[in-house]
Design a binder for these strands. Structure first.
Lengths: 210, 210
DNA sequence: TTGACAGCATACTGAGTAGTATGTTTGCAT
DNA sequence: ATGCAAACATACTACTCAGTATGCTGTCAA
């Protein structure tokens, strides 16, 4: 891959910047992305505003980069796992099995992206922010399309029953993201909880489609 | 029922107040509950702040009452429909069939409640607001318990397969609320779309549990 | 050693907004 | 007709907070 093909820059992401994004994700989930101030994020870092505005031009861009990272996490983890040679059901199960632990590992990020997915703050956004949000939609769309392909293949070979594709897709996507809404890590939680959860959701998803 | 038993006041709700709540629900969904200002809501009503603050003591209370109304809508519509004499599957189907049209009829309200469900704004809330939010949680809990009862009954009589109850419940609840995330009314939409949607979601829900 | 720049901290400003205080109109009982 | 609330509108204040301008400190190359 030459420089010409590198439209989606794989920036190594400076350590400090990643720390800021982590903090922003946590604070944004706790207080809400709009309610939380930049000072709140800075305080959570034990530093001040200056550090954040050195790395991010605006609050909107910071929020957008949190969302973008959330989308990247799952896409990079789950995307490579799909195998065209496998059956649709096997692929779907494998994807969900990878998807669940990943969203729980990076939980705050996904809580933020769900927030801004519901209440798309359309009030005085800069062109850069719009560009980023378009990138997020593209990323999310690409991730959805993987599932769409699986569902379509399953409906064609008869392993999934025939039904409205869009509705089925949206339902499955929300089903496998449901833990973002209710999951809270616990100390007395058995180590098998997350794999078990992934299995149960896989069963429900496959059953819902069959 | 005497005055002593009337803890949950069934206030007739003045027409003007209902109008304000409708406007608030729409504006809050469009701009986000935090981003949207009281003046935005007033402008959407063709009036000014004074009208809103005459009926609501604070923005937080206005938001809370929107959420409370959202919870009431579905609970009052779906709650009475459950029949202990029926099978769990029949009850579940009937509930979903009533639930879907109701949330689409009052869509903005439910978009708002989902927003504040994810990003619970915990920043300087008054005691009255806390009281209202507790009421909302109680209302929602009561609604969830109806479904929980159905699932439990189904697992006991064997019509639903045995699995983790909480996970199954949360999954089903999110499944039947999924349209709030993606549904957008269209002019070229056939009249049968909503009933068809309700049927498809019922099928998926039942299949996921069986 | 000395510049020069990255990586922050500090101090400030301006804009937007929740809430208030007070005026004005409308309905309605007597 | 008139008093008198309820139902608003208008005008203002106090305060938060995003963004900026500038200052400080280490690091590293020449």
């Amino acid at each position: 891959m030459t420089a010409a093909a590198a439209q989606t820059d794989k920036k190594p992401m400076s350590k400090s910047k990643a720390e800021i994004l982590d903090a922003a994700a946590e604070v944004f989930t706790k207080l809400g992305a709009d309610t939380a101030s930049i000072d709140d994020v800075a305080r959570h870092l034990g530093s001040t505003k200056g550090r954040i505005y050195h790395h991010f031009p605006s609050k909107g861009v910071l929020l957008a980069e949190v969302c973008l990272r959330a989308a990247d996490f799952v896409h990079e983890e789950v995307g490579p796992a799909v195998d065209p040679a496998e059956t649709p059901e096997a692929n779907l199960r494998k994807m969900i099995t990878l998807h669940i632990p990943e969203i729980l590992r990076t939980l705050p990020y996904h809580k933020v992206i769900i927030q801004s997915y519901v209440g798309m703050n359309q009030k005085s956004t800069t062109s850069l922010e719009r560009e980023l949000f378009k990138q997020i939609r593209t990323e999310r769309r690409a991730y959805e399309d993987i599932f769409r392909g699986i569902l379509q293949a399953g409906m064609q070979d008869g392993s999934f029953r025939d039904q409205n594709l869009s509705i089925a897709l949206q339902s499955i996507l929300l089903l496998i993201n449901a833990p973002v809404f209710w999951y809270r890590p616990r100390e007395d939680e058995p180590a098998s909880f997350i794999p078990d959860l992934a299995n149960q959701l896989s069963d429900m998803a496959v059953a819902a489609l069959r």
